[in-house]
Nucleic acid binder design. Structure first.
Length: 252
DNA sequence: CCATTAAGAGTGT
DNA sequence: ACACTCTTAATGG
């Protein structure tokens, strides 16, 4: 029994040395680790990768918890949020496969400033903070990609500040719909991501009621279609046109 | 398979 | 923001 188990474990570690383990086979081209897989110094990091399965609705990052590492979303959909004063959620962003989650706690921070919750069943790749820091020091290509990523994130967050402070409710709801569409797309004419009206509100910075009302107005105007929770965009050109003067819909 | 219940979508005030 | 109705999804016999 014991001998058999040892035999299997050595075979697994041998094969992950030969092949760059799961990351080498991973088809996720958005992933920064995958992108730098050919750099030899990244091998140690890749071998220490932990795969975490996360069920729908499960929270895998808790606001205020101490930072131990960083997540890459392999498959699934995630919402990243900050909890406000009266228990109100402010959804900071949504994440699709390939994206980094928990990166704000990286660096000098001791605790995560955000929570992350799976919106559907997810698979996450987890890397410890220590190993990642080591890899960043040794792998300039990876570090450069990370820098670009952080710069891009900062840009997006600044755009969001403008959106939330300068757009009307109607524009923010439209902006949210277009953002979800850009990120997750449509299937059979309806958004592939099922969100509650509350979640739309939590991203758009309004209340559930305002979102519901706005959706029914937009529906009457023929810009949207709805079927239960499902929302479909009927006229994307007109929706884009409405917020075009803000130039916000250009970002991802 | 149907009935009961809970959750979420709408609407008016 | 609150209260209420209606619709849909989940549960359990």
């Amino acid at each position: 029994m014991r001998a058999g188990a040892n035999h299997i474990s050595t075979r697994i570690s041998d094969s992950s040395e030969l092949l760059d383990s799961a990351c080498g086979l991973c088809s996720n081209e958005n992933c920064l680790i995958q992108k730098n897989i050919h750099t030899s110094s990244i091998g140690k990091l890749v071998k220490a990768r932990k795969e975490i399965k996360c069920k729908k609705g499960q929270q895998f990052i808790m606001e205020g918890a101490s930072v131990t590492g960083l997540f890459f979303l392999l498959s699934g959909k995630v919402k990243v949020l900050r909890t406000g004063l009266h228990g109100k959620e402010q959804i900071v962003r949504f994440a699709s496969p390939g994206e980094i989650i928990g990166h704000r706690g990286f660096g000098t921070e001791e605790t995560y400033p955000i929570s992350a919750i799976a919106l559907v069943d997810c698979t996450l790749c987890y890397f410890s903070k220590e190993l990642l820091q080591e890899s960043l020091r040794e792998t300039p290509g990876l570090t450069y990609d990370f820098m670009l990523f952080y710069a891009n994130e900062l840009n997006r967050s600044e755009i969001r500040v403008k959106s939330l402070s300068q757009m009307t409710v109607r524009e923010r709801v439209i902006d949210t719909l277009l953002y979800i569409d850009r990120k997750f797309g449509q299937v059979n004419g309806y958004s592939s991501l099922l969100l509650s009206r509350r979640e739309y509100a939590d991203y758009a910075g309004t209340t559930e009621e305002q979102v519901i009302r706005m959706l029914s107005i937009l529906k009457k105007e023929g810009l949207l279609i709805t079927k239960g929770k499902r929302i479909g965009i009927a006229d994307i050109a007109l929706l884009k046109k409405e917020i075009s003067e803000h130039n916000f819909y250009l970002d991802s």
